[in-house]
Design a protein around this nucleic acid. Structure first.
Lengths: 339, 339
DNA sequence: AATCGGAGTCGAAGCGCTTCGACAACCTAT
DNA sequence: ATAGGTTGTCGAAGCGCTTCGACTCCGATT
């Protein structure tokens, strides 16, 4: 293991000079710098992370808490995690992966031990028990997701309320009047995960404004659950011509079931999904969808965090504007003219 | 920030005593231990990670390198990552998330800086460029996946060769003779990712032994790609009655296409999938499948690694035996009696 | 010519912890 | 009673780095 001192000796300078070459915190003459850099290369020197952390009280690590549950939006979570990791690296940070398992204790542990300089929390509940801890520490943090009370917190999320509105508007424009919303699993609503309820708010509000009828049904993923849900929906509202689906694992089952019942998409029924683009294009009917910008969310979160760590940046809520991509699953409502 | 020294003072003992209470490396009287523990609790002390790492040259961190690509098996990767993180915690380790982006440099960086005590690599290519580095360092590591040459390495993986064999045997037992294999995307084979080729080996070998005809076709995920692939397969081998699918995102499209062509599953055609159980049960036909034991792989990997770190354990290849779960997508071959 | 200030470098003092050797106090076997 | 071994505790020496103050040049300012 090569140390700073060895590099210094090899280059014929003092240890502090090497340190300043590395950090750039004091000016160094070109000649010295080159000699030091040369020695670093020749010896294959890597600064020791622990020593650095101890001396500077900065670990250059960002903690990322991901949910333990893998019951929803797994690809999205993964994409965010990867975006966080790669973006963090471009700013010189590494990422520590924490699962929800430890709960709030993880926050205490990481904050207390100086393991990480900052945290990113995913899967935030409306009334998350980790929030008081975050407010009580001076360690910067960013939430991906929106809790009920955002005072003193920095949050990044898709604007799900606008997302809901956007879906409704699109269907309204096509002449649909009776809309069914296939939501996340009931557990997600019981857990009071913000995004599901905010989407619903957006859907309800805008559909009311536009004079549309909306029926919301939570739905576990999978074929069987979707079959039951669909049957109930069509029983209660036979005139339903538009669907908004916010559950990745209900999308394909819904399409299969509609096909099976002789309802053509988009001729008889229109389907709008809220899902990653990849899911939308891989479906058996290319789906009109509002994409979940996982990468962008991860990137934004890191950039907010780095800004805070650099003393710039402040507490603010960044809501990413939703974008609707029209594909092959939506079209004019049938018999619009009969009204 | 509370320090060891403050705890020591509060408890009326020396710093080293507190350290020994924490580590248990020397015996401490019950009275002293309790007094120290009391002080720790009262002051809310958390050992500083950097100082610890510096003094002990152990960071208690395991690095996990996940692939940057999110083109395949995302849920599996995620599940493994989560299993790794939670298992690591039970052994007192945290997990550092590295993406493939940095490539071999990440190995150098982490090894050189002492950031992590050990590494777990996922998505190992047959001839992975990170392997020489691993062999050249004394830092313990475990691969999830199997490279071509495993000397000096510890690997954990599903026994994909046995998996292939198992799929074929099941179909053979049901009387199928013409089998088509819907494989991973062509890129996966070009990349020489071990598991895809090993599965194929198992399939080929066993089908030959059992006198079956096998047709293998790589396939991008998604509906359109699957449609093209299926058409080709049925054109070339109209008598195909059994499918083995090793591509999550081809499963549902295949089922939909077969249904659409009036081929009933499992009456006319049997389908065996190699995929996580969750995918198998959520499909429109509950799939007979060999499950990918993501959790178990993650857990195993960590346990191997911890064994190495503790001086126990050695280089060995752990292949997890595949398990076939029979569900609703396989049945006797049609017109078996006509032969 | 005397003074000032910036650029470039060094030495030394920690950062908070682990760990080794030393040592006192006690217990056991002779 | 004495040598020998345990057990429990302490002091001190680092671990490899950052950072602060101090110092030396040297060109620029009056």
């Amino acid at each position: 293991m090569v140390t700073l001192a060895e590099v210094a000796q090899h280059a014929g300078v003092s240890a502090s000079t090497v340190s300043y070459v590395l950090s750039g915190k004091r000016s160094i003459s070109g000649a010295t710098r080159q000699r030091v850099e040369q020695s670093i290369r020749e010896l294959g020197y890597h600064p020791n992370a622990g020593a650095r952390a101890l001396a500077s009280s900065k670990s250059n690590i960002i903690a990322l808490m991901i949910p333990l549950r893998t019951d929803m939006y797994v690809p999205v979570m993964m994409e965010i995690a990867i975006a966080v990791a790669t973006t963090a690296r471009t700013h010189g940070y590494d990422v520590l992966l924490l699962t929800g398992e430890e709960g709030p204790d993880a926050v205490r542990r990481v904050t207390g031990s100086g393991l990480a300089d900052a945290m990113i929390l995913m899967d935030v509940q409306l009334d998350d028990e980790r929030l008081p801890l975050l407010r009580g520490t001076d360690q910067p943090s960013v939430l991906i997701g929106l809790p009920a009370d955002t005072t003193g917190l920095t949050c990044v999320d898709l604007d799900f309320k606008a997302t809901g509105a956007l879906c409704v508007e699109h269907l309204a424009m096509l002449g649909h009047r009776d809309i069914a919303v296939i939501g996340e699993a009931p557990a997600v609503y019981e857990r009071h995960t913000g995004f599901a309820e905010r989407t619903l708010d957006g859907l309800r509000l805008r559909s009311q404004e536009l004079g549309m009828r909306l029926l919301h049904r939570p739905c576990e993923g999978g074929y069987d659950a979707m079959a039951v849900t669909l049957a109930r929906v069509l029983d209660e509202r036979p005139g339903t011509t538009g669907f908004v689906v916010q559950n990745e694992s209900a999308v394909e089952p819904l399409l299969a079931l509609l096909r099976q019942q002789g309802r053509a998409v988009p001729e008889d029924v229109s389907v709008v999904a809220v899902c990653p683009d990849q899911v939308a294009v891989q479906a058996s009917v290319r789906l009109t969808s509002v994409s979940i910008p996982a990468q962008e969310m991860g990137r934004h979160a890191v950039e907010q965090l780095v800004a805070k760590l650099d003393g710039r940046g402040s507490d603010e809520v960044v809501l990413i504007a939703p974008e609707l991509t029209i594909r092959a699953s939506t079209g004019p409502a049938p018999s619009t003219t009969h009204h």
